[in-house]
Amino acid sequence: MTAGPAAAARPRNRKQLIVEAAGQVFSERGYHAASMEEIATAVGISAPALYRHFPNKYALFAGCADLMVDRLVAALDTCGPEAALTDVLTALTRVTVAHRRSGGLYRWEARYLDRADRRLLRAKFGHVVDRVTTAVHREHPRPAERLRAVAALGAIGSVTMHHTSIAQRRIEDLLVASARGVVAADPAAAEGLAGPVDLPAPPVPRTRRAEILAAAVPLFARDGFATVTNGQIAQAVGLAPSAIYRHYPGKVDILVAACLQAAGLLAQAVERSLHRATGPDAALTALTAAYVAYSFEHNALTSVAEAELAGLPAGLRRPLILAQREHIAVWEQQLRTVRPDLDARQARLLVHAGFGVVVEAGRALRWQDTPGHRDTVTALVIGALL
């Protein structure tokens, strides 16, 4: 009996194709929202065929997480230990841009790995950071070398978190230049750069509805929206689980309220910072300082909004995406005023690079909110933009 056309056409690298497709689905939909059936459809196979390669969704997810970091390590190995900083950054950028659709799972979704897999992933990324730090030390030997290396990787990795479309070579050039700007920044000269920032405070929870929201946000930030139960939220507020439904129709409505609160507070912070600025350069610095201060002060709220937005139903996500676009448009305008050499898409790419710097530098600093940390991260973001 001869095999049919489908069997004859079966690719030898099917497992790799599965991991590629799964990485994109996990990155765009989130670990919990993605299904094995959806991934199988993306590959063009049946779900049973998918299970022949991976016994469950977690095994596939862990394989996706390993693949991207292994590619980064392999790219560095081709450079050699004495490679120049630009060559190191270029190698990492090319891999990241080539696989930008699947790289987004690292920023937020890697928290769903179990402890052993997370430790392994952290060790591999640590090797990447070590290599970049060594190159930074050779070319820009000054304080905070490892922090600048991590922040530069944040600028590069930012391309996995948005869909701005530019020619691939131009993206690579912009990101390498942005990463070089980050590592060239001098944290020691950044004292006072952020200056005083007038941040809006979150509303004091005076109602049960507000108390539920205030209790849910840190739980979502720590454990992820999908794993937190209404029972945990109710316990944090001192309510019976059924009482939650008197204030929110479902858990997703709490998440939407948190995202809307984050967008509102950020819009107020931006408006206040730009209102006091005089001149384009001062406006860009004030905008950066406000965003950095906001990210440190409201870290749980911002991480929830950024990590969980993609998993919301389309109808609930739409107003939040509009608010996000309005915020980015402000950045584009301010950056292009200072840098008229950029078109709108290039400016948007660099703005996202700046956001990536804040996330990775903030994590490296464990979000310890001090004036020095705010100044340092503000300087790193300005380096990424300019």
Score class of each variant (00 low, 15 high):
39 I>N: 08
38 E>C: 01
76 L>Y: 14
34 A>M: 08
30 G>K: 05
63 G>R: 06
61 F>M: 11
84 A>P: 12
52 R>H: 13
18 I>E: 08
29 R>K: 12
42 A>F: 01
58 Y>I: 01
30 G>I: 08
8 A>F: 03
6 A>Y: 01
75 A>S: 14
46 S>T: 11
44 G>D: 03
45 I>K: 03
72 L>W: 14
56 N>L: 00
65 A>H: 06
69 V>K: 05
32 H>V: 06
12 R>G: 01
31 Y>D: 13
83 A>S: 15
48 P>F: 02
45 I>A: 04
71 R>N: 10
6 A>C: 03
86 T>F: 14
28 E>G: 14
44 G>T: 09
41 T>Y: 05
47 A>L: 07
40 A>G: 04
48 P>R: 10
15 K>N: 04
23 G>P: 08
37 E>H: 02
70 D>N: 10
58 Y>F: 05
34 A>S: 11
26 F>W: 07
6 A>I: 01
77 D>Q: 12
24 Q>H: 09
14 R>K: 02
19 V>G: 10
79 C>D: 11
74 A>V: 15
56 N>Q: 03
48 P>E: 10
11 P>H: 00
73 V>P: 10
71 R>C: 08
68 M>E: 06
78 T>S: 14
37 E>W: 00
21 A>C: 15
23 G>A: 12
36 M>K: 03
71 R>S: 09
59 A>L: 04
38 E>G: 12
38 E>Y: 06
6 A>W: 01
57 K>F: 09
23 G>V: 09
45 I>P: 01
10 R>N: 00
38 E>V: 08
59 A>S: 11
63 G>F: 03
48 P>V: 07
63 G>D: 10
78 T>H: 15
53 H>I: 01
58 Y>P: 00
73 V>C: 13
55 P>C: 04
40 A>F: 10
42 A>E: 10
64 C>F: 02
67 L>T: 11
36 M>P: 03
86 T>K: 08
28 E>Y: 06
38 E>L: 08
21 A>I: 04
8 A>R: 14
56 N>H: 11
